[in-house]
Design a protein around this nucleic acid. Structure first.
Lengths: 166, 166
DNA sequence: ATGGATGCAAATATTTTGCATGCCT
DNA sequence: AGGCATGCAAAATATTTGCATCCAT
């Protein structure tokens, strides 16, 4: 039987595609930009990295890219819609691989206690968002939903603690 | 006929209520904290201010609160659930008055061209969020949805421009 | 060739913190 | 009174920018 590769994680942009995206917008595909993006691809979708994280990861892999360039690259890759920017952990500006060009919308559920982030998709929410946008005459580019609360694991943990010390 | 006051905007916490909320959590109601919060109440809900904005506004009103204290107050008021924190304009950490203690959830629709922000509510989205949370065993505290795109006004403006120069 | 991109370091901007003093409870 | 809160200034972070040099197109 052939190896199975989860469809959802096939998100490798070919170098050619990357070059085209950048060139079309008057930018260049430099080794640094490639390194930054391929880091996100290596880690897979759902990983949230700060500029500093990216810088460290790259340094550890022996691929040195200056922090300034990391900042510039992240900003560019966001405007190129290859990455998404968000603040998932309190006060940290993070980046993640963008999923299939605004087709696959995914949302986040963040535990305020342990900071664990789960992702999910919801047709209902996407549809509802489209409706709202349409009524308002808004041309929708991006739907981002974040649920915050306490995850199952943390709830059970605190429940157990409460029962131990009644 | 008596004066009409839009119900939705009655969001003035009394000093007593404030004091109680803070004291219960072991904090104090200081003039500074009151000033910060009352600024948000003066401007009304739907206003997004950075720490620096708050500092300036207060300074202009003759009420001086040190920037450090503004930072400390904002952080505290967020944990007290009196304010909400978010990044609506690219790269700016902003705060706004929290609406009716997690009962009235409101979402944001941000125009990427003119940065104008509209707010809206959606029962469908709220309900769907609750469902997702329940299925996952997640105790939901906060639902935050942000739609990004181009607002009607900007779309019309660019359409008009396109027609002028065919 | 040539203009955008990078690295470095310096400049800015943002946020946090130590400490003496003040003031809410 | 006692301890949390403030102001100030300094420190720690985070992000941007000027400029000489490099390199993708």
């Amino acid at each position: 039987m052939a190896n199975r590769v989860p469809l959802a994680s096939i998100q490798q942009y070919s170098q050619e595609h990357l070059r085209e995206v950048l060139n079309t917008a008057g930018h260049r595909l430099t080794p640094q930009r490639e390194k930054v993006l391929s880091l996100f691809q290596r880690l897979g979708p759902g990983n949230h990295l700060t500029a500093d994280d990216v810088h460290h990861h790259l340094k550890q892999s022996g691929k040195k890219v200056s922090l300034a360039t990391v900042y510039r690259s992240l900003k560019l890759l966001v405007t190129m819609r290859l990455l998404d920017e968000g603040e998932w952990q309190e006060g940290l500006r993070c980046y993640e691989l963008r999923q299939g060009g605004s087709k696959v919308v995914h949302h986040h559920m963040v535990c305020m206690r342990c900071d664990h982030t789960e992702e999910f998709t919801s047709e209902v929410i996407t549809a509802a968002s489209r409706d709202v946008a349409q009524v308002t005459g808004f041309e929708l580019t991006e739907v981002r939903l974040t649920l915050r609360g306490i995850c199952r694991r943390c709830r059970q943990r605190s429940k157990a603690a409460a029962e131990t010390v009644p």
